[in-house]
């Protein structure tokens, strides 16, 4: 067993569930974060209704709206639009719940620093940066058949939001439930986020080496995180930017 695989297995023994941080709000209610959560949930319900619960029907229905690297690179299908639409689709209730919980937790705080409209722009931008790495890694460097496997989910953008949080509030502590330990601990925010990023990076490395096959699109996560971390500067609210200078 290689060291990366060992580290990944070790990290899977615990699950970090963020509960709250100590940061108070600067602006009002985070309407944009809430709206994104609600839109994601409504779209998922709509898909369940229209797809009538049949996997086959849902697949046919959703395929054009999912992010298919090969189609994007060949200029077929919905192209750039499919990246936006795939960001609002989820593979099941657990996928949706996990993403929305993290979006709600970190999104509120990031929205507080960007303002609602800029937060929506940042979220969209992170969807694109996540797709960039995902399409390049899966479309350009893999076989055509693998390039036709679609991707979906908001996790790329959510990783971007998490990375933006890390950039903005690196000194924060997050009350985290480290399952299976039944009581929470205050841990530095960077530990939580860097752990997630490292884990994705390790899994990505193993996928590239061909020693691991997973259904999680870690390249999308890393792309989203890179977008959030490197470009949050352009989406900050002017007041916050002035204060941080």
């Amino acid at each position: 067993m290689t060291l990366p695989v060992f580290l990944i297995l070790l990290s899977q023994l615990v699950y970090l569930l963020p509960l709250r941080d100590r940061r108070s709000r600067r602006l009002g209610f985070p309407w944009m974060t809430l709206s994104l959560v609600v839109i994601n949930i409504l779209i998922h319900i709509l898909v369940l209704i229209v797809g009538s619960g049949s996997d086959e029907e849902t697949w046919v229905l959703l395929y054009p709206y999912m992010e298919v690297p090969r189609l994007i690179l060949d200029g077929e299908g919905l192209g750039a639009l499919s990246i936006l639409t795939s960001g609002f689709l989820h593979g099941g209730w657990w996928h949706l719940a996990g993403n929305m919980f993290i979006l709600w937790f970190f999104g509120r705080k990031v929205e507080d620093a960007t303002g609602s409209l800029r937060f929506a722009l940042l979220y969209t931008f992170c969807l694109y940066t996540s797709a960039l790495l995902s399409v390049i890694s899966r479309g350009a460097f893999t076989s055509t058949a693998e390039g036709m496997i679609p991707g979906l989910g908001a996790s790329g953008a959510i990783f971007g939001i998490m990375a933006a949080y890390l950039f903005l509030y690196s000194d924060q502590r997050i009350l985290t439930l480290i399952l299976p330990i039944p009581w929470p601990f205050w841990i530095p925010a960077w530990i939580y986020i860097v752990r997630e990023l490292l884990l994705n990076a390790l899994v990505g490395q193993l996928i590239q080496e061909g020693s691991l096959v997973v259904r999680v699109n870690v390249f999308a996560h890393l792309g989203g995180a890179a977008g959030g971390l490197l470009f949050i500067y352009f989406f900050l609210h002017p007041d916050v930017f002035a204060q941080r200078r």
């Binding site: 800029r118 722009l121 399409v135 470009f231 500067y233 930017f241």
Partner: peptide, 20 residues
Amino acid sequence: RQVTGPILICLMAVLFDSGL
């Protein structure tokens, strides 16, 4: 700085629309 954010989104969209 403020104009760059929205432009980046459109630039990414154009780039994806042209198959990168």
